[in-house]
């Protein structure tokens, strides 16, 4: 760890003296150092790359504020954190700017999707229009609360025939109500 720190610092000292090769190595090492730091805090890979570029440019602009007499990493992390905060601030302010107000959304909705045209009366009318046997079965099962077995006993039918009749009645009703 100490060797790595010394590397960073000596590379920076060489860079300040005008060594372009040392500077390129330093920037590459710095980008590798900062990538996990940024990836942990940002969701997308392209965001990490964009921000990394900004940070490298900032390091370049601020390199005169590093004199090689103190650890390099706190200096570089201070710049990275500063740019990250800037990035997140503008990112969230953009989100807020493009957010739709809930009241506006209510006005632009085509219709009220929570109100149904169907009600008890309209269904009852349609049930009365069904063949007599089917209408009686639905009435007994859904208004008076009998089970299919009880309805079968009451009407002198087999239970399976009651279920089939009820099923056909539902199908007819569904078609009519969907129209």
């Amino acid at each position: 760890m100490t060797d790595q720190n010394e590397n960073f610092e000596s590379l920076m000292r060489q860079s300040l003296a005008g060594d372009q090769r040392a500077y390129a190595i330093l920037l590459q090492k710095t980008s590798r150092l900062l990538r996990p730091f940024l990836a942990k805090r940002l969701s997308f890979g392209n965001e990490v790359d964009d921000l990394m570029q900004e940070i490298l440019v900032s390091i370049h602009k601020a390199r005169h504020t590093y004199d090689g007499n103190r650890p390099f990493k706190p200096w570089v992390y201070a710049i990275a954190t500063f740019r990250l905060q800037d990035f997140l601030r503008s990112h969230y302010s953009d989100h807020l700017r493009h957010a739709v107000d809930f009241d506006e959304l209510e006005e632009t909705l085509p219709e009220n999707v929570t109100v149904s045209e169907l009600n008890y009366e309209s269904i009852s009318v349609e049930v009365q229009k069904l063949p007599e046997k089917q209408a009686t079965i639905l009435q007994l099962m859904h208004q008076e609360g009998y089970t299919a077995k009880e309805v079968a006993e009451k009407m002198g039918m087999k239970e399976s025939a009651v279920k089939v009749a009820a099923h056909r009645a539902y199908k007819v009703l569904r078609n009519k109500l969907e129209q």
């Binding site: 300040l16 003296a17 005008g18 372009q20 500077y23 920037l27 490298l56 370049h60 390199r63 005169h64």
Partner: peptide, 8 residues
């Protein structure tokens, strides 16, 4: 950036 780097 490395190309731009002069002694500072």
């Amino acid at each position: 950036l490395a190309q731009d780097a002069t002694a500072v």
